[in-house]
Simulated assay, not measured.
Amino acid sequence: MPFTLSLKRPFVADHFHDLPGFQEDRHGHNWEVEATAELASEADEVAFGKALDTWLAVLDYHLLNTLPALEGRNPTAEVLAEWAFNYLREADLQPQSVKIREKANYWALCRGDATS
């Protein structure tokens, strides 16, 4: 029977903003990602966790601006949430949402019904 599962993971990364209208010096955050997916069975839980951890390994303890997937984009919480959502979808999972927390009072949520 299908069920919904949410996984939460912390990560650490630096970034800076250097596009017109939004500039900020390099700084770091203790980020957090929370991903929710519709799973067909408990066996899919392992694949979901592995896919999320694989995505995190690319950015944990890195300067986000240097990552090829973010080239030409300000690495904001919004951009990271969209990237993680699409990554999970491309891993043949059924993500419902991805939430990225950048600071205690700042987060972004990407939902499947809002992604093209």
Rank of each mutant, 00 (worst) to 15 (best):
E38I: 06
A40K: 12
R101V: 02
P10I: 01
E78F: 09
Q94C: 11
P2F: 11
E71Y: 10
W55N: 11
S6A: 14
L59M: 10
L7S: 03
E24T: 09
E90H: 08
R73M: 09
P68Y: 07
L93F: 03
F22K: 14
R101Q: 06
S41H: 10
W31R: 06
T66S: 14
R89V: 05
D14G: 06
A51K: 07
F85E: 02
L59K: 10
D14N: 14
L93S: 03
L93G: 01
T66I: 07
C110K: 00
F48E: 10
F85K: 02
F11A: 00
L70H: 08
D92R: 05
E102K: 01
Y61C: 07
N65Q: 13
R101P: 00
H17E: 04
V46E: 10
R9Q: 14
R111G: 01
A47V: 13
E82C: 02
R89M: 08
T76H: 02
S116D: 00
Y87M: 01
Q96N: 05
E102G: 07
E90D: 14
P95T: 00
E24F: 08
I100H: 00
H62W: 08
A77V: 04
D25A: 15
F16K: 03
A40H: 09
A35L: 04
F11C: 05
P68T: 09
Q96P: 07
E71I: 11
V98A: 04
A108L: 00
W107D: 02
E82L: 14
E78V: 01
D18I: 10
E34D: 14
K50V: 01
G21H: 04
A51W: 07
R101K: 04
L64E: 07
G49Q: 15
V98S: 06
L59D: 04
F3E: 06
R9W: 01
F85P: 04
L56R: 14
F11L: 05
A91K: 03
K8P: 03
P20V: 07
W83I: 07
F3M: 12
G112Y: 00
N30F: 06
D53L: 05
V12G: 13
V46L: 15
A114V: 00
A77C: 07
D92C: 13
A35I: 04
S41Y: 03
E82W: 09
D25T: 15
H29E: 04
R26M: 13
L67Y: 11
E24K: 15
L59I: 13
N86M: 10
E24V: 09
A69V: 07
V12E: 12
A43I: 14
L19P: 02
W55F: 14
D18S: 13
G72Y: 09
T4W: 08
E78G: 12
H62F: 04
D25W: 15
A84Y: 05
N74V: 10
V33I: 13
R26L: 15
